[in-house]
């Protein structure tokens, strides 16, 4: 609670910088806390179940539909080029490289980010975080670190499973329109892929997960008093983490390009 000073920056921009700085500090604290024991393994597993396993139905359905729709939508264009045979390759590359990770991360930002923001916000408001601290448990470790670790580890798993479901959806869409065997479809998909497509997309999923966890926890942990503060935490957690996902995605493209993986 710093002294209110007249600032040359407009209020919105000032708030943005304050929040950016605080989020960085928050991330820094996460890395400090994660290094030293005690480690809250049980809580990490519990959160992983809540975050990872429980998001699977939503991610799975979304991924399946995206795979199906993407294939059906791309088909006419490729057909007009006479390049229908490229459909599996094209859809496979788009799903693995971009659509799978980003859609999964956005879905999770909506589902997990908001729930973390709201949960931590209400924990803050109802003094549960204080209660934890008083009872000798480091609430940052127990609540924040475990959640960020869980999102960081679970989003990539969700992305991989989502990709697989999405590809299956794409396969069904191709199969509906023309005879293609499962083997041929996946052969063509993997023929078009290389490590430069698969690995960066998995690696960036870790960052997506980290961003979702970090922003959700930050927003919840710094929630304003009152129920309105809880709602606002949940809302801004989703907005900021979604935005951050796109920024990370943009950076990932540039980095992979820099390393010549495109």
């Amino acid at each position: 609670m710093a002294e209110e000073k007249k600032s040359i920056l407009p209020k919105g921009l000032r708030d943005f910088y304050i929040e950016a700085g605080e989020t960085t500090q928050f991330a820094g604290r996460f890395f400090r806390e994660i290094l030293f024991p005690p480690y809250e393994f049980r809580e990490v597993i519990r959160q992983s179940y809540e975050i990872g396993y429980k998001s699977l139905p939503l991610v799975g359905i979304t991924a399946f539909i995206i795979g199906l729709v993407l294939t059906l939508q791309s088909r006419p264009t490729l057909v007009s080029f006479g390049a229908e045979a490229w459909l599996p390759a094209m859809v496979g590359v788009s799903i693995i490289r971009e659509i799978g990770p980003v859609i999964t991360a956005l879905i999770c930002a909506g589902k997990i980010g908001s729930s973390i923001g709201a949960e931590l916000g209400s924990m803050k408001v109802t003094e549960q975080i204080d209660a934890m601290e008083v009872s000798g448990t480091n609430p940052f470790k127990y609540i924040v670190v475990s959640r960020i670790v869980s999102t960081t580890l679970m989003i990539p798993v969700l992305v991989v499973i989502g990709d697989a479901i999405s590809l299956y959806g794409a396969f069904l869409a191709v199969k509906v329109k023309g005879a293609v065997s499962f083997t041929l479809f996946f052969h063509q998909v993997f023929e078009a892929l290389n490590f430069g497509d698969a690995l960066p997309s998995v690696i960036k999923s870790f960052f997506f997960g980290f961003a979702i966890g970090l922003i959700g926890c930050y927003k919840g942990y710094h929630s304003k008093k009152g129920t309105e503060g809880v709602g606002r935490s949940a809302n801004s957690a989703v907005v900021v983490s979604s935005l951050l996902i796109f920024i990370i995605d943009l950076m990932a493209v540039q980095i992979t390009e820099f390393f010549g993986l495109i």
């Binding site: 924990m123 109802t126 003094e127 549960q128 204080d130 209660a131 000798g136 448990t137």
Partner: peptide, 25 residues
């Protein structure tokens, strides 16, 4: 410490709430 809002951990049962302090101490 008894908090104004009781500050029971919403995600845990009463038993787990009570056991929580024992985790550390």
């Amino acid at each position: 410490f008894v908090f104004q809002s009781s500050a029971l951990y919403d995600s845990m049962t009463v038993r787990e709430n009570l056991e929580f302090a024992l985790r550390r101490h």
